[in-house]
């Protein structure tokens, strides 16, 4: 199958559609981490990638008949993401205090 045959099932909200959205979201998040230099933008890219994983996880859960295990994993992912946000932003603030920058290229060495 090629062309429209391949694309059509993604348009009506089947499992393939959700997976394609999750994959594109992950790719955009990865691009933000690789291409942007500001640490806060890279941080937002990481959040996007976590969200993409959540979309794929919950799509699979729905199409397996509403599996509640997936929701438990989703809760744990959200808890870890919140921890990551708190500690990551604290590190960015610490870097800004010491080096007066939020550019990841300018923070390439651990020495002052």
């Amino acid at each position: 199958m090629t062309g429209m045959d391949a694309i059509l099932p993604t348009l009506n909200g089947g499992l393939q559609g959700y997976l394609v959205v999750a994959l594109l979201l992950f790719a955009i998040g990865l691009a933000a981490v690789l291409l942007r230099r500001t640490l806060l933008m890279q941080f937002m890219g990481v959040e996007l990638m976590l969200n993409a994983a959540n979309v794929a996880l919950l799509a699979f859960a729905r199409f397996r008949g509403g599996d509640a295990q997936a929701m438990v994993f989703y809760l744990f992912i959200i808890a870890v993401a919140a921890c990551e946000a708190a500690v990551g932003l604290a590190l960015v603030i610490g870097l800004y205090r010491h080096r007066d920058t939020t550019d990841s290229d300018r923070a390439a060495s651990l020495k002052q």
Binding site: V21, L25, I28, G29, A31, L35, R36, M44, G45, L48
Partner: peptide, 8 residues
């Protein structure tokens, strides 16, 4: 997807 692209 457009929100994510706008962010990027």
């Amino acid at each position: 997807l457009l929100g994510a692209l706008g962010m990027l």
